[in-house]
């Protein structure tokens, strides 16, 4: 058995660094077609940096505890890599393959160095596997986290994009809602509408739900609460574009809509809103 705590892996890496690097890159290019998305030059830089850091970490930490301070620079590099690959659309396994594909080149060199001593070899291989597996898991976790962050940001972007409050006329705002309304989205949209009412001094807001396929009880309640809140602030709301199915749902759900002005179309609502603000419309007669 090899002496515990001082593996020969770091010596092997130091001695064969260039050869390991070449093998490793070959391995990756063949396995995951990394070259499709990432240039070979870039891959070479990343791999070389990783090997250097690995060597330093292995030398200063015999316990192979990848969460310890000795590995902080290695973790940082892997973190950067996972994030950039997550953004580039790599799958978690493709990202983890960066670390895992290093196994074969390392095992090859270990066998070359201590192949004669089966016990020692088995021990070194085991230690190497432990380290690389832990590092691979670390990249997977970070990859997942980065994906979550991306999804969250996209959701927020979409929320903002999908809910424009537009001014139709002096004192008249419209909020055309499109797509499925869940409770969270409705809440954000409604807060946004009330804020715009204050900013523009609008006395009437038209909430158009023509583009909303279904309305459940919670969303209907949110709509009503918004109407009530707008009223407390001194503005009236008109809900337009209620489709037949939604009208049925609302009645079946027992949601009380009688206190709210509802109109079939945005155009009808706009006419009412103009009348309310004292404007009149008509066709100009030809001279």
């Amino acid at each position: 058995m090899a002496i515990r705590g001082r593996s020969r892996l770091s010596d092997v890496v130091s001695k064969h660094e260039a050869a390991i690097l070449t093998d490793w890159i070959k391995e990756q290019l063949a396995a995951v077609k990394a070259a499709d998305r990432i240039g070979e030059a870039e891959l070479r830089t990343e791999c070389a940096r990783f090997l250097t850091l690995l060597k330093v970490a292995l030398r200063s930490d015999g316990s192979h505890d990848v969460s310890s301070a000795a590995w902080s620079e290695t973790r940082e590099l892997l973190g950067e890599l996972s994030r950039s690959r997550a953004r580039a659309g790599y799958s978690p396994s493709e990202t983890a393959a960066f670390v895992l594909s290093l196994k074969r080149p390392l095992f090859d060199r270990l066998r070359g160095e201590i192949g004669g001593d089966a016990d020692a070899l088995a021990d070194e291989v085991w230690q190497t596997t432990l380290v690389l597996d832990r590092l691979a898991l670390f990249t997977t976790e970070l990859h997942q986290k980065s994906r979550d962050e991306i999804i969250l940001r996209q959701q927020q972007d979409m929320l903002e994009l999908s809910t424009p409050v537009v001014q139709l006329w002096e004192s008249i705002l419209a909020l055309p809602l499109i797509g499925t309304l869940d409770s969270a989205r409705t809440q954000v949209v409604m807060e946004n509408l009330l804020q715009r009412i204050v900013e523009t001094g609008a006395s009437i807001a038209i909430i158009d739900i023509t583009g909303v396929p279904t309305v459940d009880t919670l969303v209907a309640q949110h709509l009503l609460k918004t109407v009530a809140a707008a009223r407390l602030m001194g503005a009236d709301c008109i809900i337009s574009g209620i489709r037949p199915q939604i009208a049925q749902t609302i009645v079946h759900l027992g949601v009380e809509l009688s206190s709210v002005i509802t109109k079939a179309t945005l155009a009808d609502a706009f006419v009412i809103a103009l009348q309310r603000t004292g404007a009149t419309i008509g066709r100009a007669t030809k001279a």
């Binding site: 407390l232 602030m233 001194g234």
Partner: peptide, 15 residues
């Protein structure tokens, strides 16, 4: 006439 109620206050009152 009550004037100038803030949106956050109005939402909270309704709740």
């Amino acid at each position: 006439v009550v004037v100038g109620m803030r949106p956050a206050v109005a939402i909270t009152l309704v709740e």
